[in-house]
Write a protein that binds this DNA or RNA. Structure first.
Length: 427
RNA sequence: GCGGGUAUAGCUCAGUUGGUUAGAGCGCCAGAUUGUGGCUCUGGAGGCCGUCGGUUCGAGACCGACUACUCGCCCCA
């Protein structure tokens, strides 16, 4: 490989065929969960007006501040456009734009899900990419804590289905539109008294997003933070009740969780319930799922009041979290029902026709265009993880009876084409 | 935006204090009697040692710059 060769842009990557079984598995499990829980798919544009994210996600966030891929359109207005850094703002925008709430009965919720790539210009590291994939759900139209517990129950099922067991559910309440600012003021007042003892990062956080001081990894800061008031102690009555109900719903479902009063989420739109699911095998970027309630987002982007709760999980990180033995199982799952081994030119021509017939019947058929020695062809059948090898030579063509070898047991029998077809279809 | 690490075969990596023709495992190719895979054995192909410059009689090893990748910080999925 020369240095002249054009390669992928930093922070982006190709997902190669060897890994696709894992990606498809996660997507299939997610879609099955969404089917069971009544979520409908929505696809929004990959770029939107910059203003949507600036207002929706929050001007003060790092995402908006320094991580967006923003460019000027070529129209006369020089519209500023941005590759989506997340999808909640877009989904809520679509919900409002198409007035999806109008045909709903009183209290009926709209459950939407999406699968797609997001873009953030961050420094890449383990489990973090500039183009990354998220699968998310937004439940709009109501603020019942039972919704939150049900959504988490759904995630719980998905993780179990993917054999990802090494996870922890962290929950917190970040208060509502009035209690959060009041708390922030209290927090900043408390922190201000010994601000000089904090690290430089925390001093910066104090200015931009004081809640994030709780996340500091500096042990010295952690000691100072322990004395600061937490938001759970400052919740208004309604938010406190909401949080209690949420926990009761989790308990009723037997879902384990850890209340972390210091867990905050980075996006401005979160209110009340916030949660994270962290994994144990991911390195520093260990958040697999992040989500929460965002009851004020709709108004922020110019819509009517609309309650919302949702999550997004990192598909990249979910794939990384699949345990090695499960990943190996997925990779080696039979790719083809049958691999055709042919010997000689006449058999080669016949094989093409038989392959077509088997494929028409719905079978997955592999065969190679270059003739190989039988030994080598059998080795190929093995490499393809084919369930069966179908052997076609001059004798077989003459008699109409073909060799069908079970690649797992090694047993081989001689059958006519119809019998082969029904045997393969029968499993 | 800020730190650390790495760069040798298709892949994962060895390579002594600088010293002949640069190694292993896996993979690939060819064999171990005829039309039967996995296991084993034998042989083979395949490297401008990231790029450029410097030190030296001599550099894959040492130094510098650049580039790429990677891990972490900030932040986040």
């Amino acid at each position: 490989m020369t240095t002249f060769m054009i390669q992928t842009v930093k922070g982006t990557r190709d997902i190669l065929p060897a890994d696709m079984p894992l990606w498809l598995r996660v997507e299939a499990v997610a879609r099955e969960a969404f089917r069971r829980y009544g979520c409908s798919e929505i696809r929004t544009p990959i770029f939107e007006k910059t203003e949507l994210f600036a207002r929706g996600v929050g001007e003060a966030t790092d995402i908006v501040h320094k991580e967006m891929y923003t460019f000027i359109d070529k129209d006369s207005d020089q519209t500023s456009l941005t590759l989506r850094p997340e999808n909640t703002a877009s989904v809520v925008r679509a919900y409002i734009q198409h007035k999806m709430y109008n045909d709903k009965a009183q209290g009926e919720v709209t459950k939407l899900y999406y699968i797609g790539q997001m873009f953030r210009r961050e420094r890449p590291q383990a489990g973090r990419y500039r183009q990354f994939y998220q699968i998310g759900v937004e439940v709009l139209g109501h603020d019942d804590p039972a919704i939150e517990a049900e959504v988490i129950e759904m995630l719980d099922w998905m993780l179990k289905e993917l054999k990802i067991t090494d996870t922890t559910l962290l929950i917190n309440s970040v208060g509502d539109a009035t209690s959060r600012p009041a708390y922030l003021e209290k927090l900043r007042a408390a922190a201000a008294q010994q601000l000089d003892k904090f690290c430089d990062d925390c001093k910066h956080r104090y200015e931009t997003n004081a809640l994030r001081m709780f996340d500091c990894k500096n042990p010295n800061c952690q000691a100072l933070i322990a004395d600061l008031p937490t938001i759970t102690d400052s919740l208004d009555d309604a938010s406190a009740q909401h949080f209690a109900d949420f926990k009761a719903h989790l308990d009723a479902r037997g879902i384990a969780y850890t209340v972390n009063p210091r867990m905050v989420r980075g996006l401005d739109y979160y209110t009340r319930t916030a949660f994270e699911i962290i994994g144990g095998s991911l390195g520093a970027q260990n958040t697999i799922v992040g989500g929460g309630r965002y009851d004020g987002l709709s108004e922020t982007i110019g819509g009517p009041p609309a309650k919302g709760f949702g999550f997004a999980f990192g598909l990249d990180r979910m794939v990384l979290s699949i345990p090695p033995d499960e990943a190996e199982r997925l990779r080696t799952a039979s790719a083809a029902d049958v691999f055709i081994v042919y010997l000689g030119e006449a058999a080669r021509e016949k094989s093409f026709l038989i392959a077509r017939e088997l494929r028409s019947a719905g079978l997955s058929v592999a065969l190679e265009f270059e003739e190989r020695k039988m030994k080598k062809a059998m080795a190929q059948a093995n490499k393809f993880h084919a369930r069966y090898a179908l052997i076609i030579g001059d004798n077989e063509i003459a008699t109409g009876m073909y060799g069908l070898k079970n690649m797992t047991t090694g047993e081989q029998e001689s059958l006519d084409l119809e019998s082969i077809k029904s045997k393969l279809l029968g499993g």
